[in-house]
Design a protein around this nucleic acid. Structure first.
Length: 446
DNA sequence: GCATGATCATGC
DNA sequence: GCATGATCATGC
């Protein structure tokens, strides 16, 4: 029996071609395939039905539960997973369920055979789940070929070991999803005795379980589908930071007009985000979601210097929630988390009427300044606790940071910890402090 | 010229 | 509709 039907429009032995075919599904619905099958395949909304139809009708792979991946030649397993709309965001609706766990054979099969061989490479089709629609109407959002990044694989392998160890210790019946990080043993089927499984080192029956990728991890995969990778095609001998800074090199010293001309962009108006947009363009990416930036928690900020090298403005951070902040400790506060990461400063300097791109640099806050920020934060929190909302730390009181309004207008108010309505505020890094940091950091040279 | 308050533009 | 990054405006 052939692995795939003969009329499929892709080459099942060529991963690239499979991905091409899958990408072409974007924007389509299963309805486009199953019209002719309406009678024998009523599109009832039933768990897993979307995946079955997709594999069968679109990819031409008959339903099976064999050990080998769906596309055996290239070792690719096809998975479809629903995305739902939550507020304004699209997020995964479920975990992705992988192969069943067979407690009796798990240990002898080992990591490779029991897990990696079938689940190591996934072709993931994301579709938009909409409550009132039939599955033939769900729109396919995206398709990606997923291979686990090295650092994720380490964690997943640890997760697998946790599960295997419990089987080895005769505790398969105690396995739970909360024991693992990315990979989980999720329950499968109904929880009655009839459905329970034997395990090798105990007489106790264990629930049927399958390997699955946790919903939060699916969220990471989904996000990465949506972002771009800088190092994907980069020179492997360079570090990530070197690669990033190199992208900016051709523009160093050029005026923003020149850069815009080089990049072929024009601004009709003069949006406040102009230089941030320009920074993204110089990096050579279309979106803001640069995969490595997200993973490494790098925070890109544009800075405009006056001719004398001092930033024109202080640097703002997201506004805080009074009710939250008074309950938080410094170590788990938002401001601490915002500061305690790597920054990428994209720096422009005033030159005549316009601006010149000076350079880009990575920066992290020195420890002693982080302590100073902590002092400012604690002072602000103390004032809020005592309902002294106007006595917030001013720029003159600390060399590092201060608190200032940050709303959409002066009328932009939020509920404070004492129930009163107060102006929306945020922490800022002082312009002068930034000037000093840029100077010392700049001497280390990019 | 600087500190502080206020607001704009974008995108989710 | 609002959070966010960024910048503008004003008064001392």
């Amino acid at each position: 029996m052939p692995t795939v039907r003969e009329d499929v429009q892709y080459d099942p032995s060529n991963a690239e071609d499979i991905l091409r075919f899958a990408k072409e599904l974007k924007g389509k619905t299963l309805g486009e395939w199953i019209i002719d099958h309406e009678n024998d395949r009523p599109p009832v909304n039933r768990k897993g039905r979307f995946g079955q139809i997709l594999e069968d009708v679109v990819f031409g792979i008959p339903n099976n539960s064999k050990k080998a991946p769906d596309l055996e030649d290239v070792g690719i397993e096809i998975k479809s997973t629903p995305i739902k709309i939550e507020g304004k965001k699209k997020v995964p609706k479920e975990r992705i369920v992988l192969s069943m766990i067979n407690y009796m054979t798990l240990l002898e099969e080992g990591w490779d055979m029991s897990f990696f061989k079938k689940n190591g490479k996934l072709l993931i089709i994301f579709y938009l789940y909409e409550k009132r629609k039939r599955i033939s109407e769900y729109k396919i959002l995206d398709a990606i070929l997923w291979e686990y990044p090295e650092e994720d694989l380490r964690i997943i392998r640890d997760d697998w070991n946790v599960i295997a160890r419990m089987v080895k210790e005769g505790r398969a019946h105690e396995i739970s999803e909360r024991h693992t990080m990315y990979l989980a043993a999720c329950r499968k089927g109904i929880s009655n005795d009839k459905d329970s499984q034997r395990q090798p080192y105990s007489d106790e029956k264990a629930l049927r379980r399958a390997f699955s990728l946790k919903q939060s991890y699916v969220g990471q995969i989904w996000k990465s589908a949506d972002s771009e990778s800088i190092v994907r095609c980069a020179n492997m001998n360079k570090t990530f930071e070197e690669e990033v800074l190199d992208r900016f090199t051709p523009y160093v010293g050029r005026s923003t007009d020149e850069i815009e001309a080089m990049l072929g962009i024009t601004f009709e108006k003069n949006p406040k985000s102009r230089y941030a947009i320009l920074a993204n363009k110089m990096l050579g990416v279309k979106t803001k979601n640069i995969a490595e930036f997200e993973k490494a928690d790098v925070y890109m900020k544009t800075i405009r210097l006056k001719a004398d090298g001092v930033p024109k403005e202080s640097m703002s951070f997201p506004s805080f929630d009074y009710t939250e902040i008074v309950r938080q400790k410094w170590e788990d506060s938002d401001f601490y988390n915002q500061l305690n990461r790597r920054f990428l400063f994209v720096i422009y300097r005033a030159d005549g009427d316009g601006l010149r791109f000076e350079n880009a640099m990575f920066w992290s806050m020195p420890q002693e300044d982080l302590q100073e920020a902590e002092r400012v934060w604690k002072k602000a929190v103390q004032s809020f606790k005592e309902s002294r909302f106007t006595e917030r730390p001013k720029m003159t009181e600390s060399k590092v940071s201060h608190v200032r309004p940050h709303g959409q207008s002066g009328k932009d108010r939020v509920m404070a910890n004492d129930g009163s309505m107060q102006k929306k505020m945020c922490f800022w890094l002082n312009a002068k402090y930034l000037a000093e940091q840029i100077k010392t950091c700049g001497q280390r040279k990019i």
